[in-house]
Design a protein around this nucleic acid. Structure first.
Lengths: 150, 150
DNA sequence: TTTTAAATCAGAATAAAATTCTTCAAATAT
DNA sequence: ATATTTGAAGAATTTTATTCTGATTTAAAA
Protein backbone atom coordinates (compact mmCIF):
# COMPACT_ATOMS: atom_id res chain seq x y z
CA UNK A 1 0.00 0.00 0.00
CA UNK A 2 1.02 3.52 -0.84
CA UNK A 3 2.64 5.70 1.76
CA UNK A 4 1.31 9.08 2.74
CA UNK A 5 3.46 11.99 3.82
CA UNK A 6 3.07 15.04 5.99
CA UNK A 7 1.42 17.11 3.25
CA UNK A 8 -1.12 14.38 2.53
CA UNK A 9 -1.95 14.37 6.23
CA UNK A 10 -2.42 18.13 6.21
CA UNK A 11 -4.77 17.86 3.24
CA UNK A 12 -6.77 15.09 4.93
CA UNK A 13 -7.17 17.13 8.10
CA UNK A 14 -8.26 20.21 6.20
CA UNK A 15 -10.75 18.33 4.03
CA UNK A 16 -12.12 16.43 7.02
CA UNK A 17 -13.16 19.78 8.46
CA UNK A 18 -14.18 21.51 5.22
CA UNK A 19 -14.24 19.88 1.82
CA UNK A 20 -15.32 23.02 -0.04
CA UNK A 21 -11.91 24.65 -0.37
CA UNK A 22 -10.79 25.01 -3.97
CA UNK A 23 -7.63 23.26 -5.09
CA UNK A 24 -6.02 26.67 -5.39
CA UNK A 25 -6.85 27.53 -1.78
CA UNK A 26 -5.57 24.18 -0.57
CA UNK A 27 -2.40 24.68 -2.59
CA UNK A 28 -1.68 27.92 -0.80
CA UNK A 29 -2.29 26.31 2.60
CA UNK A 30 0.26 23.55 2.01
CA UNK A 31 2.70 25.66 -0.03
CA UNK A 32 2.37 23.85 -3.33
CA UNK A 33 0.86 24.68 -6.70
CA UNK A 34 -2.55 23.44 -7.78
CA UNK A 35 -1.57 20.43 -9.87
CA UNK A 36 0.34 18.40 -7.28
CA UNK A 37 -2.41 19.12 -4.74
CA UNK A 38 -5.02 17.94 -7.21
CA UNK A 39 -3.04 14.77 -7.87
CA UNK A 40 -2.52 14.12 -4.18
CA UNK A 41 -6.22 14.38 -3.44
CA UNK A 42 -7.08 12.03 -6.31
CA UNK A 43 -4.53 9.57 -5.00
CA UNK A 44 -5.97 9.79 -1.47
CA UNK A 45 -9.44 9.15 -2.90
CA UNK A 46 -8.30 6.24 -5.06
CA UNK A 47 -6.34 4.63 -2.25
CA UNK A 48 -9.33 4.84 0.08
CA UNK A 49 -8.02 7.35 2.60
CA UNK A 50 -10.93 9.56 1.64
CA UNK A 51 -14.10 7.46 1.63
CA UNK A 52 -16.57 10.08 0.45
CA UNK A 53 -17.76 13.65 0.71
CA UNK A 54 -20.98 14.54 2.49
CA UNK A 55 -23.03 17.54 3.59
CA UNK A 56 -23.66 17.93 7.31
CA UNK A 57 -27.24 18.96 8.03
CA UNK A 58 -28.75 20.84 10.94
CA UNK A 59 -30.56 18.18 12.97
CA UNK A 60 -32.57 20.75 14.93
CA UNK A 61 -33.96 22.38 11.80
CA UNK A 62 -34.87 18.98 10.40
CA UNK A 63 -36.69 17.96 13.58
CA UNK A 64 -34.04 15.49 14.62
CA UNK A 65 -32.33 17.36 17.44
CA UNK A 66 -33.33 15.04 20.28
CA UNK A 67 -30.49 12.53 20.70
CA UNK A 68 -30.63 9.33 22.74
CA UNK A 69 -28.13 6.53 23.23
CA UNK A 70 -30.05 3.32 23.47
CA UNK A 71 -28.51 0.12 24.83
CA UNK A 72 -29.91 -3.17 23.63
CA UNK A 73 -29.84 -6.72 24.95
CA UNK A 74 -30.88 -9.51 22.61
CA UNK A 75 -33.25 -12.25 23.73
CA UNK A 76 -30.75 -14.90 22.73
CA UNK A 77 -27.26 -14.92 21.29
CA UNK A 78 -27.49 -17.16 18.29
CA UNK A 79 -26.58 -16.11 14.77
CA UNK A 80 -30.13 -16.04 13.46
CA UNK A 81 -31.37 -13.67 16.14
CA UNK A 82 -28.34 -11.45 15.58
CA UNK A 83 -28.77 -11.31 11.83
CA UNK A 84 -32.46 -10.59 12.17
CA UNK A 85 -31.71 -7.75 14.57
CA UNK A 86 -29.17 -6.17 12.21
CA UNK A 87 -31.54 -6.48 9.28
CA UNK A 88 -34.35 -4.85 11.26
CA UNK A 89 -32.45 -1.87 12.64
CA UNK A 90 -31.05 -1.06 9.20
CA UNK A 91 -34.54 -0.12 8.09
CA UNK A 92 -35.33 2.19 11.01
CA UNK A 93 -34.48 5.77 10.06
CA UNK A 94 -34.28 7.14 13.60
CA UNK A 95 -31.31 4.85 14.29
CA UNK A 96 -28.37 6.76 12.88
CA UNK A 97 -25.58 4.61 14.36
CA UNK A 98 -25.33 1.13 15.85
CA UNK A 99 -22.41 -0.76 17.36
CA UNK A 100 -21.88 -4.26 18.65
CA UNK A 101 -20.28 -3.71 22.04
CA UNK A 102 -18.63 -5.34 25.03
CA UNK A 103 -20.19 -5.21 28.49
CA UNK A 104 -23.66 -5.70 29.91
CA UNK A 105 -25.45 -4.89 26.66
CA UNK A 106 -25.06 -6.26 23.15
CA UNK A 107 -25.56 -3.14 21.05
CA UNK A 108 -25.34 0.59 21.46
CA UNK A 109 -27.44 2.71 19.15
CA UNK A 110 -27.51 6.44 18.61
CA UNK A 111 -31.06 7.54 17.96
CA UNK A 112 -32.14 10.85 16.47
CA UNK A 113 -35.70 12.03 17.07
CA UNK A 114 -37.73 15.24 17.08
CA UNK A 115 -38.52 15.23 20.79
CA UNK A 116 -39.35 12.98 23.73
CA UNK A 117 -42.77 12.25 22.33
CA UNK A 118 -41.27 11.09 19.06
CA UNK A 119 -38.69 9.01 20.92
CA UNK A 120 -41.38 7.35 22.99
CA UNK A 121 -43.25 6.50 19.81
CA UNK A 122 -40.02 5.14 18.34
CA UNK A 123 -39.41 2.86 21.33
CA UNK A 124 -42.95 1.54 21.46
CA UNK A 125 -43.74 1.15 17.80
CA UNK A 126 -40.42 0.67 16.06
CA UNK A 127 -38.21 -1.07 18.61
CA UNK A 128 -41.32 -2.72 20.03
CA UNK A 129 -41.78 -4.63 16.82
CA UNK A 130 -38.21 -5.92 16.62
CA UNK A 131 -38.66 -9.44 17.93
CA UNK A 132 -34.99 -10.10 18.65
CA UNK A 133 -34.74 -7.40 21.33
CA UNK A 134 -34.79 -8.58 24.91
CA UNK A 135 -34.43 -5.30 26.77
CA UNK A 136 -33.44 -1.69 26.26
CA UNK A 137 -31.97 1.12 28.33
CA UNK A 138 -32.08 4.77 27.23
CA UNK A 139 -29.50 7.44 28.01
CA UNK A 140 -30.64 10.93 27.03
CA UNK A 141 -28.30 13.54 25.64
CA UNK A 142 -28.69 16.85 27.45
CA UNK A 143 -26.14 18.66 25.32
CA UNK A 144 -23.52 17.99 22.71
CA UNK A 145 -20.11 19.09 23.95
CA UNK A 146 -17.85 18.02 21.09
CA UNK A 147 -18.37 16.45 17.73
CA UNK A 148 -15.65 16.38 15.10
CA UNK A 149 -18.29 15.40 12.55
CA UNK A 150 -20.86 18.02 13.54
CA UNK B 1 -37.95 31.26 8.87
CA UNK B 2 -38.10 30.01 5.30
CA UNK B 3 -40.07 26.92 4.45
CA UNK B 4 -38.57 23.95 2.65
CA UNK B 5 -40.48 21.74 0.26
CA UNK B 6 -40.28 18.17 -0.94
CA UNK B 7 -37.57 18.91 -3.52
CA UNK B 8 -35.41 20.66 -0.93
CA UNK B 9 -35.74 17.59 1.23
CA UNK B 10 -34.70 15.35 -1.66
CA UNK B 11 -31.64 17.50 -2.27
CA UNK B 12 -30.71 17.43 1.42
CA UNK B 13 -30.97 13.66 1.55
CA UNK B 14 -28.88 13.23 -1.57
CA UNK B 15 -26.17 15.66 -0.44
CA UNK B 16 -26.10 14.14 3.04
CA UNK B 17 -25.02 10.90 1.42
CA UNK B 18 -22.81 12.32 -1.34
CA UNK B 19 -21.98 15.98 -1.78
CA UNK B 20 -19.92 15.48 -4.95
CA UNK B 21 -22.74 15.35 -7.45
CA UNK B 22 -22.65 18.20 -9.93
CA UNK B 23 -25.57 20.62 -10.07
CA UNK B 24 -26.46 19.15 -13.44
CA UNK B 25 -26.63 15.63 -12.01
CA UNK B 26 -28.73 16.79 -9.08
CA UNK B 27 -31.03 18.63 -11.47
CA UNK B 28 -31.73 15.44 -13.37
CA UNK B 29 -32.43 13.55 -10.12
CA UNK B 30 -35.10 16.01 -9.00
CA UNK B 31 -36.44 16.82 -12.48
CA UNK B 32 -35.42 20.46 -12.64
CA UNK B 33 -32.87 22.46 -14.59
CA UNK B 34 -29.53 23.50 -13.13
CA UNK B 35 -30.30 27.04 -12.09
CA UNK B 36 -33.17 26.43 -9.66
CA UNK B 37 -31.22 23.55 -8.13
CA UNK B 38 -28.22 25.79 -7.69
CA UNK B 39 -30.40 28.46 -6.08
CA UNK B 40 -32.09 25.96 -3.79
CA UNK B 41 -28.79 24.64 -2.52
CA UNK B 42 -27.49 28.15 -1.87
CA UNK B 43 -30.67 28.94 0.02
CA UNK B 44 -30.37 25.76 2.11
CA UNK B 45 -26.78 26.72 2.92
CA UNK B 46 -27.64 30.31 3.78
CA UNK B 47 -30.59 29.31 5.95
CA UNK B 48 -28.44 26.84 7.88
CA UNK B 49 -30.05 23.58 6.78
CA UNK B 50 -26.67 22.61 5.38
CA UNK B 51 -24.03 23.33 8.01
CA UNK B 52 -20.94 22.38 6.05
CA UNK B 53 -19.33 19.91 3.69
CA UNK B 54 -16.69 17.46 4.88
CA UNK B 55 -14.62 14.51 3.68
CA UNK B 56 -15.10 11.23 5.50
CA UNK B 57 -11.79 9.49 6.10
CA UNK B 58 -10.94 5.83 6.57
CA UNK B 59 -10.25 5.48 10.30
CA UNK B 60 -8.53 2.12 9.89
CA UNK B 61 -6.04 3.44 7.35
CA UNK B 62 -5.29 6.40 9.58
CA UNK B 63 -4.68 4.18 12.61
CA UNK B 64 -7.88 5.20 14.35
CA UNK B 65 -10.02 2.13 13.84
CA UNK B 66 -10.29 1.10 17.50
CA UNK B 67 -13.48 2.69 18.87
CA UNK B 68 -14.41 2.93 22.54
CA UNK B 69 -17.36 4.56 24.29
CA UNK B 70 -16.08 5.98 27.53
CA UNK B 71 -18.44 7.02 30.34
CA UNK B 72 -17.26 9.72 32.72
CA UNK B 73 -18.25 10.79 36.22
CA UNK B 74 -16.99 14.13 37.46
CA UNK B 75 -15.51 14.50 40.92
CA UNK B 76 -17.98 17.23 41.78
CA UNK B 77 -20.85 18.92 39.99
CA UNK B 78 -20.09 22.59 40.24
CA UNK B 79 -19.77 24.91 37.28
CA UNK B 80 -16.01 25.37 37.53
CA UNK B 81 -15.26 21.65 37.45
CA UNK B 82 -17.62 21.24 34.52
CA UNK B 83 -16.11 24.08 32.51
CA UNK B 84 -12.61 22.80 33.21
CA UNK B 85 -13.58 19.34 32.01
CA UNK B 86 -15.05 20.67 28.78
CA UNK B 87 -12.00 22.80 28.15
CA UNK B 88 -9.67 19.85 28.75
CA UNK B 89 -11.43 17.30 26.56
CA UNK B 90 -11.63 19.77 23.67
CA UNK B 91 -7.86 19.55 23.35
CA UNK B 92 -7.63 15.75 23.31
CA UNK B 93 -7.60 14.50 19.73
CA UNK B 94 -8.62 10.91 20.50
CA UNK B 95 -11.98 12.17 21.79
CA UNK B 96 -14.06 12.60 18.64
CA UNK B 97 -17.43 13.12 20.32
CA UNK B 98 -18.62 14.04 23.80
CA UNK B 99 -22.14 14.39 25.25
CA UNK B 100 -23.55 15.53 28.57
CA UNK B 101 -25.97 12.76 29.47
CA UNK B 102 -28.66 11.59 31.86
CA UNK B 103 -28.18 8.53 34.07
CA UNK B 104 -25.38 7.18 36.24
CA UNK B 105 -22.63 9.01 34.38
CA UNK B 106 -22.18 12.67 33.49
CA UNK B 107 -20.60 12.40 30.04
CA UNK B 108 -20.36 9.90 27.24
CA UNK B 109 -17.36 10.16 24.94
CA UNK B 110 -16.59 8.39 21.71
CA UNK B 111 -12.86 7.70 21.54
CA UNK B 112 -10.92 6.78 18.43
CA UNK B 113 -7.55 5.04 18.88
CA UNK B 114 -5.16 2.85 16.93
CA UNK B 115 -5.51 -0.21 19.15
CA UNK B 116 -5.93 -1.33 22.74
CA UNK B 117 -2.40 -0.30 23.58
CA UNK B 118 -3.04 3.19 22.29
CA UNK B 119 -6.33 3.34 24.19
CA UNK B 120 -4.65 2.27 27.40
CA UNK B 121 -2.08 5.00 26.92
CA UNK B 122 -4.89 7.48 26.27
CA UNK B 123 -6.72 6.54 29.49
CA UNK B 124 -3.59 6.69 31.62
CA UNK B 125 -1.84 9.71 30.20
CA UNK B 126 -4.54 11.88 28.70
CA UNK B 127 -7.64 11.21 30.80
CA UNK B 128 -5.37 10.59 33.76
CA UNK B 129 -4.25 14.19 33.70
CA UNK B 130 -7.79 15.64 33.57
CA UNK B 131 -8.26 16.64 37.21
CA UNK B 132 -12.04 17.00 37.05
CA UNK B 133 -12.66 13.32 36.25
CA UNK B 134 -13.84 11.15 39.13
CA UNK B 135 -14.23 7.80 37.42
CA UNK B 136 -14.46 6.22 33.98
CA UNK B 137 -16.04 3.14 32.44
CA UNK B 138 -15.05 1.84 29.00
CA UNK B 139 -17.31 0.04 26.53
CA UNK B 140 -15.44 -1.41 23.56
CA UNK B 141 -16.82 -1.51 20.06
CA UNK B 142 -16.49 -4.96 18.51
CA UNK B 143 -17.99 -3.94 15.19
CA UNK B 144 -19.81 -1.09 13.57
CA UNK B 145 -23.24 -2.19 12.34
CA UNK B 146 -24.68 1.06 11.00
CA UNK B 147 -23.44 4.59 10.59
CA UNK B 148 -25.24 7.12 8.45
CA UNK B 149 -22.16 9.32 8.63
CA UNK B 150 -19.64 6.60 7.85
C1' DT C 1 -63.21 36.82 -11.74
C1' DT C 2 -59.58 39.82 -13.21
C1' DT C 3 -55.35 42.02 -12.28
C1' DT C 4 -51.00 42.54 -10.10
C1' DA C 5 -47.08 41.10 -7.81
C1' DA C 6 -43.93 37.68 -6.37
C1' DA C 7 -41.68 33.29 -7.10
C1' DT C 8 -39.78 29.91 -9.77
C1' DC C 9 -38.26 28.02 -13.77
C1' DA C 10 -35.48 27.21 -18.31
C1' DG C 11 -31.86 28.31 -21.14
C1' DA C 12 -28.09 31.20 -22.60
C1' DA C 13 -23.93 33.69 -21.27
C1' DT C 14 -20.12 34.27 -18.26
C1' DA C 15 -16.83 33.32 -14.67
C1' DA C 16 -14.42 30.19 -12.02
C1' DA C 17 -12.84 25.91 -11.02
C1' DA C 18 -11.22 21.35 -12.09
C1' DT C 19 -8.44 18.58 -14.91
C1' DT C 20 -4.95 17.54 -18.28
C1' DC C 21 -0.58 18.12 -20.44
C1' DT C 22 4.17 19.49 -21.06
C1' DT C 23 8.39 20.75 -19.25
C1' DC C 24 11.75 21.08 -15.67
C1' DA C 25 14.25 20.02 -11.46
C1' DA C 26 15.44 17.05 -7.71
C1' DA C 27 16.19 12.63 -5.86
C1' DT C 28 17.46 7.83 -6.50
C1' DA C 29 19.39 4.11 -8.66
C1' DT C 30 22.79 2.24 -11.95
C1' DA D 1 28.93 10.44 -13.27
C1' DT D 2 24.86 9.16 -15.85
C1' DA D 3 20.32 7.28 -16.46
C1' DT D 4 15.78 6.80 -14.42
C1' DT D 5 12.11 7.93 -11.68
C1' DT D 6 9.38 11.05 -9.06
C1' DG D 7 7.17 15.23 -8.04
C1' DA D 8 6.46 19.94 -9.02
C1' DA D 9 5.15 24.27 -11.75
C1' DG D 10 2.67 26.65 -15.13
C1' DA D 11 0.04 26.80 -19.32
C1' DA D 12 -3.83 24.96 -21.90
C1' DT D 13 -8.17 22.83 -21.93
C1' DT D 14 -12.43 21.08 -20.26
C1' DT D 15 -15.96 21.05 -17.09
C1' DT D 16 -18.62 23.08 -13.65
C1' DA D 17 -20.44 26.76 -11.04
C1' DT D 18 -22.62 31.04 -11.18
C1' DT D 19 -25.06 34.91 -13.10
C1' DC D 20 -28.43 36.94 -16.03
C1' DT D 21 -32.64 37.41 -18.85
C1' DG D 22 -37.05 36.37 -20.15
C1' DA D 23 -41.06 33.42 -19.72
C1' DT D 24 -44.39 30.97 -16.81
C1' DT D 25 -46.61 29.84 -12.95
C1' DT D 26 -48.48 30.75 -8.42
C1' DA D 27 -50.46 33.54 -4.96
C1' DA D 28 -52.47 37.63 -3.47
C1' DA D 29 -55.16 41.68 -4.14
C1' DA D 30 -58.62 44.21 -6.25
Amino acid sequence: MEQIDEIDLQLLNILHDNSKYTVKELAKMVNLSASPVFERIKRLENNGYIKKYIALLDAEKLNRGFIVFCNIKLKQHDRNIGNQFVSDIMKIEEIVECYNISGDYDFLMKVSAKDMKHYQDFVFNKLGSVESIGSTQSTFVMSEIKNLYG
